[in-house]
Amino acid sequence: MKFSLVGDIGGTNARLALWRGQGLEAVQVLQTADFPEPVQAVRAYLQEQNLLVEDLEKVCLACAGPVQGDEFHFTNNHWRLSRSAFAQELDLKRLLLINDFAAMALGMTRLQQGEWIDVCKGEAELDRPRLVIGPGTGLGVASLVPKLDGGWIVLPGEGGHVSLPIGSSREAALWEVLHRHIGHVEAESVLCGKGLLRLYQAICELDRFTPHLQTPADVTTAALAGDTCAAGALGQFCVWLGRVAGDSALTLGARGGVYLAGGMLPRFADFLMTSGFLQGFHDKGQMTAYVEGIPVQLVTAKYPGLEGACVALELDMDT
């Protein structure tokens, strides 16, 4: 029996699943570091599911990075993909490549009750755009624009690479430390997994503490346990995420709402809710009132990127 496959591929993980027109089946998470190229990961997945490559008909892969042309280079891992070679090797009837946060945005159209937490309640203007933003291996940003017929246009972008906004003297001092080490400081420099560790190290340097944490997970765990420097880093992370999300909402006119997506934030949801995120989001000077009414939701759905890839496959769209 013929079947389709969807994938959500980031810098660290490749999430793969079957799609038969009814919903996701047999979701499996593979490590990108374990395979030289995407086609080997797909073959390993099919072998694990006892499925034949010959029965694979269509594939939609949501890929981290700008999608254009035949050759695709993943932004935060070593994989490369040629559309033509990939489709030929697997003898596919149809191959769709879409930006990973375009897929994440499409996944927001399939959210079910209980798959989000209200960070800021507000009245969504249904005819206005919606912003989707989330830190993970990188910082993803995309938007949904409503169509007159009730559907959606998804607009992928590279908003994670905008310059990091400075809103206080403390942030300016941290920016100077970061700039001394890495040069240009973009939002993704701190608003991702590795960025959280970098931010922790910058705070330790600025405040003259000796850093003792080695991974982003260490920083999160220590912050939740009350470690001063780690909590300072995670708190500043939330403030800066609020600033970037608020700036993006202003640029887009996202009065339809903001979705905080990705797998990183749910790990410290309670911390986020009591952090300075909303202060950073709302601190927009004369435009503060504009953003204060925008609802913000933390997405807790398990596989929204895969769901979005299913939507793209249904619509037969390349983005």
Rank of each mutant, 00 (worst) to 15 (best):
Y45R: 02
G107K: 13
F237A: 15
I98Q: 10
W152T: 11
S82G: 06
D100F: 04
E171A: 10
G21V: 05
D91N: 15
N50Q: 13
I9L: 11
T32A: 12
K194M: 12
P304L: 03
V258Q: 07
R130A: 10
L174H: 00
A231L: 14
K284P: 00
D270K: 07
G308F: 05
R208L: 07
E57R: 11
L18P: 01
R80E: 14
D318T: 05
L46Y: 05
A172C: 02
A223W: 12
V185N: 08
Q68M: 03
G136A: 03
C229K: 15
A187K: 04
W116K: 04
T228V: 15
A309H: 10
R180L: 07
I9N: 06
W116E: 13
L250R: 10
L46E: 09
P129N: 02
K147E: 06
E57S: 12
L234K: 14
R267N: 13
I294D: 05
V59Q: 08
V39M: 02
S248W: 04
M317W: 15
F101H: 13
G293E: 09
I166C: 06
G256N: 06
L196I: 06
V239C: 11
D91R: 15
E307L: 09
R20F: 01
A222T: 13
G242I: 03
F237M: 13
G235L: 00
G263L: 05
V39I: 14
V258M: 03
L92C: 08
T32P: 08
L197M: 09
W175P: 00
Q201I: 04
L51R: 14
A33M: 10
L61I: 06
L97F: 07
G183R: 12
P129M: 08
A245R: 07
G134Y: 11
G308Y: 01
A254Y: 00
A124G: 04
E158Q: 14
Y290R: 00
L16H: 01
A124I: 02
V67K: 01
G183T: 05
G107R: 07
A64T: 11
L265V: 15
D149P: 05
F281D: 03
H179R: 13
D55Y: 07
A33L: 12
Q112T: 09
P146L: 08
Q113K: 09
R20P: 00
A312H: 08
L174T: 01
A33Y: 03
F237H: 13
F281K: 04
E188A: 01
R208T: 10
W175L: 09
V185A: 03
Q28E: 15
Q31V: 02
L24N: 07
D91Q: 15
G235F: 01
F74N: 11
R255Q: 14
G122E: 06
E89Y: 02
Q28P: 00
R170N: 06
L313A: 11
G262Y: 05
C204N: 13
Q113F: 02
C238E: 04
G246R: 09
A41C: 06
G21L: 08
L298S: 08
M287A: 12
T288E: 11
K2A: 10
G136E: 02
M273Y: 00
W116P: 00
